[in-house]
């Protein structure tokens, strides 16, 4: 199992580092949004700091959906997913590998974009960068857990690009609410208990939805 997961990871990383389609599009998108949102507030407005957590997470979700869509389109383009399914590996291996790939790529983009958001929006994270990192980690995992499942579905529909957000958003609402609130708590310099109050719901989401997605994934990819 570990060997097959590694094989798929190597394949995806090599291919992505060569083309950088997913990473570049996600990164450029995030940066553009950061700049554009600045224009939607009056210059020097204090309000942008309050709105920052929401802006940051909406940007990351949209960027993540962009990337996850790509990652399955590229699997089904030449029937490669069928090629993988012909190999003597469990279907769960495919889910785990694609989940890791999506998680790592989105996280990478977030870690590059986040400092820029902090600079652009004049935010203060120096108080507790560790808390922020934790929130980013668990939230991104949650996005990827359902995003990997849903992008495997969306790629088979007539409206590939539109279907993924339509499936993803309503189900991701717990993460959206909690990630925004936890991030706001970090920016406001609140104590750990407050941040954890939100984060624990995201953790519960990650665990429960992972189990469901893990169990149902094989029904999605069966031809």
């Amino acid at each position: 199992m570990i060997r097959s997961v590694t094989a798929i990871l190597i394949k995806d990383f090599v291919s992505e580092l060569r083309g950088k389609e997913m990473l570049l599009s996600m990164l450029v998108f995030s940066l553009m949004v950061a700049v554009i949102f600045n224009f939607s507030f009056p210059p020097g407005s204090e309000f942008i700091q309050e709105a920052a957590p929401g802006i940051i997470w909406m940007t990351f979700i949209f960027a993540g959906l962009l990337g996850m869509n790509r990652s399955f389109v590229y699997e089904v383009d030449k029937g490669c997913l069928q090629g993988i399914m012909l190999a003597p590996i469990d279907r769960a291996v495919i889910y785990i590998s694609k989940l890791i790939v999506n998680f790592v790529f989105i996280l990478l983009v977030e870690l590059i974009a986040l400092p820029l958001f902090v600079v652009f929006f004049k935010l203060d994270i120096l108080g507790s960068p560790g808390y922020l990192l934790l929130v980013v980690l668990v939230s991104t995992l949650g996005f990827a857990v359902i995003g990997t499942l849903f992008s495997a579905i969306a790629v088979n529909t007539r409206t590939r690009e539109v279907m993924l957000p339509i499936l993803h958003f309503p189900v991701a609402i717990p993460i959206i609410i909690c990630a925004v609130q936890a991030t706001a708590a970090v920016f406001q310099g609140q104590e750990w208990a407050v941040v954890w109050g939100w984060t624990k719901i995201i953790v519960a989401f990650d665990v429960i939805l992972f189990i469901v997605a893990f169990l149902t994934f094989e029904y999605v990819i069966e031809e």
Partner: peptide, 19 residues
Amino acid sequence: TYLYETLTAAENLRFYGRL
């Protein structure tokens, strides 16, 4: 073809061979 266009011929075979 079940082949990845962004990989080389050898990389494609190596990937499937590992599986």
